[in-house]
């Protein structure tokens, strides 16, 4: 059985749910879709995707809906908890179980960590985690990995700097977990003391395939060693205390001056949306690939939807 066939009916809750070989098969398919999207326009014809967004999202929700529509399928759902039965006190399990009666695939974003696992336990159809609080965001990781593979030509032996909110940044946690599975990844974890990566993420690195890490407060001290700089936003919605947010929000701002010592082939990534952690002047730098990431995200979600529905061709 092929790797893509293996994915039929599965859930994607965290990056470790798919093997490196399964990820590679997905990226190969996503590359093919990116090259000729029209060839896949009937892949999900007659199928329905439910997008349950209990937390606001522009990019991820539209990316999933675009992906499903471009595959010839249709999408239903809601974009905030207040317009769902959650406002009446319905449990996540009951909502997801009910939606599974209508749709072929459920995508869920919820502010509570582990909500996607509750959803998967209750669902008869595949569940995709589109972000569970500050925990994981595995489809952003697929997007990131696809972008790295396209830009750098490989996924092993890379030096990856992650900068900003490494404590609550779910995209960071998921990317570290995923990159740790590839040979010899070197992580530079750049954050304020209060926003260091949680211990379980450090354990993912230590359990990785020859991965190493350095924790530092200084972006300037690390930037010249990096193949990839992954910037993140300090997220207001993750703080219980507004004062802490205001004190930490501008810890790192990447501008043209700070980019000078970086290697000519380093790439700058960001899961978006950004606020002011990357100055607009960096957008013109050919090393800035964050808008390409957004496009890749749609293609890799098309590949993922096809595979989970059992409609992907190797």
């Amino acid at each position: 059985m092929g790797e893509l066939e293996n994915l039929k009916g599965r859930n994607l809750l965290e990056p470790g749910d798919f093997t490196v070989a399964e990820q590679k098969a997905l990226f190969d398919l996503a590359d093919k879709i990116a090259d000729s999207p029209g060839a896949y326009q009937d892949t999900a014809k007659g199928r329905l995707l439910a997008a349950l967004f209990f937390e606001p999202s522009t990019r991820t929700r539209l990316s999933f809906e675009s992906a499903m529509l471009r595959l010839g399928g249709q999408a239903i759902g809601f974009s905030e908890a207040q317009s769902s039965s959650a406002a009446k006190g319905e449990s996540i399990a009951d909502t997801v179980r009910t939606v599974g009666c209508y749709a072929d695939l459920t995508v869920i974003r919820h502010p509570k960590e582990g909500s996607c696992r509750v959803a998967a336990q209750a669902s008869d159809v595949p569940v995709i985690n589109a972000g569970d609080g500050g925990h994981h965001h595995p489809t952003q990781t697929l997007t990131d990995l696809m972008t790295i593979r396209r830009e750098k030509g490989r996924l092993d032996r890379l030096r990856v700097g992650l900068c900003g909110d490494l404590k609550f940044g779910r995209t960071v946690h998921s990317l570290i977990k995923a990159m740790s599975a590839y040979d010899g990844t070197g992580f530079y974890l750049i954050s304020p003391e209060e926003l260091r990566v949680p211990s379980y993420v450090i354990r993912d690195i230590e359990a990785g395939n020859g991965s190493t890490y350095v924790e530092t407060r200084s972006l300037g001290g690390a930037i010249d060693r990096l193949d990839i700089l992954y910037m993140t936003r300090v997220q207001r919605e993750r703080f219980f205390n507004e004062e802490d947010y205001i004190r930490l929000k501008d810890s790192y701002i990447l501008d043209a001056m700070k980019m000078r010592p970086a290697r000519a082939d380093m790439i700058v990534m960001h899961p978006l949306p950004r606020v002011n952690e990357i100055a607009a002047e960096v957008d013109k730098d050919p090393r800035a690939v964050y808008f390409k990431q957004a496009k890749n995200g749609m293609y890799v979600r098309m590949a993922l939807i096809s595979a989970l529905l059992g409609e992907a061709q190797e």
Partner: peptide, 30 residues
């Protein structure tokens, strides 16, 4: 921030991470 703080009728499950350190992780939020 764990889903177990809001979801009714949910089991609180912890999985052994390391017998040496006797550390466990929440099945939902880690």
């Amino acid at each position: 921030r764990c889903v177990t703080s809001v979801e009714p009728a949910i089991q609180h499950v912890f999985l052994l991470v390391d017998p040496e350190t006797e550390e466990y992780r929440c099945e939902y939020c880690d």
